[in-house]
Amino acid sequence: MKFHLKVWRQKDANAPGTLENYEADNIPADASFLEMLDIVNAGLTGKNIEPIQFDSDCREGICGSCSLTINGVPHGPGRGTTCQVYMRKFKDGDTITIEPFRAEAFPVQRDLVVNRSAFDRVIQAGGYISERCGSAPDANSVPISKVIADEAMDAAACIGCGACAAACPNGSAMLFVSAKVTHLGLLPQGKPENGRRVLGMVRQMDEEGFGNCSNYYACEAVCPASVPAAFIGRMNREFTAASVKEIVGMNV
C-alpha cells in the first residue's frame, strides 16, 4: 500500500516544530502503524534524513507506551493503542496526519515523543495502597464480590497511555485519575485511604496543569482500555465527600 504522511517534526522541546511530508511506499496491508513508521524510517536513514522519533515498547497493546495522534484521534481509528492499528484500516493512497499527543502537561520532547511523567507524579500522590510487605496473602482470604471485582478490574484496565488527556479539548486527565481512584477505591485493600487518595491525586493533577472536565466524553471514545467516563462521576463524588470531611475537620 501507499500513503502520504504529514508528520510533526520538532527538533527538541523548545523548537517550534512543523508538519513535514513523507511518502510511505510498499507498505504491507498487515503492517501495524508503528511498523509502517519503521519502514518509512529505514528509508529516511538510507537518504541520510533523521528518522521520525516516536515512543513504543511492547507493541502488543498492553504497555501504554505508544502514543501518536492519527488524523486528530489519539491512537488513531478503532479502539486500541497505536501499535494495534493496522494499515488495512486505511485506504490505499490516503493522506495521514501524525501529530504528538497534545496537552500542556505532556510537553513534546522531540517529533512525536511527549513527556508523560506528569502521570507518574499523579500516581505518586496516591495511586497506590499502603500494605505491609511480606509473602503474598492466601487467595480468597479477603472475600470480594464478583460485581466489585469486575468493576475494579474494568478500572484497573487503564494502561496510563494518556490518550484521554490528549483527546480532551481541555487537556484534562480526569479519566486516567478516575480509573486509578476507582480501581483502588473499590477494593478492601485500598478503601482505608480512599479520601486521602482522591484528594492527593486530584490536587496533583491540578498542579500538573491538566484541564478540567467539561463532560465532552472524547476521552471515553479513544480509551484503548474502554474505561467508562462514569468513573469520572464516581471520582467527583468521592472528591466532594473527602473535601466535606476535610472541611468539617474529620480525619481524611
Binding site: 495522534t69 501529530e99 502537561a105
Partner: peptide, 27 residues
C-alpha cells in the same frame, strides 16, 4: 475560571482536528 484554565491546559490544537464523539451542544 475553568475556561481560562482549560485554555492553558490545551493551547496547541490538532492541525487535523477531529471532534471525536463530542456533541455540538457540549462544544
Amino acid at each position: 475560571l475553568l475556561w481560562k484554565e482549560n485554555q492553558r491546559a490545551n493551547p496547541k490544537k490538532y492541525i487535523a482536528a477531529d471532534p471525536i464523539k463530542t456533541t455540538v451542544f457540549s462544544r
